[in-house]
Amino acid sequence: MSHLTEMEKVFSAIDQTAIILRKELNCLYLEAIAETGENMFHGEILQDELDEVTKKRLEREYESINLEKIDGETIRKAYQLAILKGMKEAVQPNHQMTPDAVSLFVSYLIGKFMEGKSNYNLLDPAVGAGNLLTTILNHHHQLIDAAYGIDVDDLLIKLTYVNANLQKHGVQLFNQDSLQPLFIDPVDLVVCDLPVGYYPNDEGAKAYQVRAEEGHSYAHHLFIEQSLNHMKDGAYGIFLVPNNLFETEQAKSLHAFLKEVAVIQGLIQLPLSMFKQESMAKSIFIIQKKGEGVVTPKQALLVQLPKFSNREAMNDMMTQMNEWFRNC
Rank of each mutant, 00 (worst) to 15 (best):
Lys9Tyr: 10
Lys307Cys: 10
His3Leu: 14
His139Lys: 10
Thr248Cys: 06
His221Thr: 00
Ala205Thr: 01
Gln226Arg: 06
Val303Gln: 05
Phe246Ser: 01
Leu132Gly: 05
Asp15His: 12
Val91Gln: 11
Met1Ile: 06
Asp193Lys: 05
Ser309Leu: 10
Val241Ala: 10
Glu52Pro: 03
Leu143Ile: 09
Ala90Trp: 14
Ser107Asp: 00
Lys168Glu: 10
Phe11Asp: 03
Gly234Gln: 11
Asn94Ala: 13
Glu89Val: 10
Ile268Cys: 01
Gln299Pro: 03
Leu28Ile: 04
Tyr199Trp: 00
Leu166Lys: 03
Gln265Met: 12
Ile224Pro: 03
Phe183Ser: 12
Gln265Arg: 07
Ala219Asp: 00
Ile157His: 04
Gly72His: 06
Glu49His: 09
Glu59Phe: 13
Ile284Pro: 00
Gln16Val: 06
Leu123Thr: 02
Glu249Phe: 09
Leu240Gly: 05
Pro93Ser: 08
Ile19Glu: 15
Leu302Asn: 12
Leu137Gly: 04
Phe246Trp: 07
Leu143Phe: 15
Gly204Tyr: 10
Met97Glu: 01
Gly234Val: 07
Asn163Leu: 04
Leu28Val: 03
Ala101Ser: 13
Val106Ser: 01
His216Gln: 13
Glu247Ala: 15
Arg60Thr: 12
Leu189Asp: 01
His220Glu: 11
Asn165Glu: 15
Asp124Trp: 00
Lys289Glu: 07
Ile264Asp: 02
Leu132Asp: 05
His230Asn: 15
Pro306Asn: 09
Thr160Tyr: 00
Glu292His: 15
Leu30Asn: 08
Leu28His: 02
Leu67Phe: 05
Ala313His: 02
His139Ser: 09
Thr98Arg: 06
Ile287Ser: 05
Gln16Arg: 10
Glu49Val: 11
Ile14Thr: 00
Asn175Thr: 14
Lys69His: 12
Tyr208Arg: 04
Ala164Gln: 04
Asn138Ile: 03
Ile284Asp: 01
Phe174Val: 09
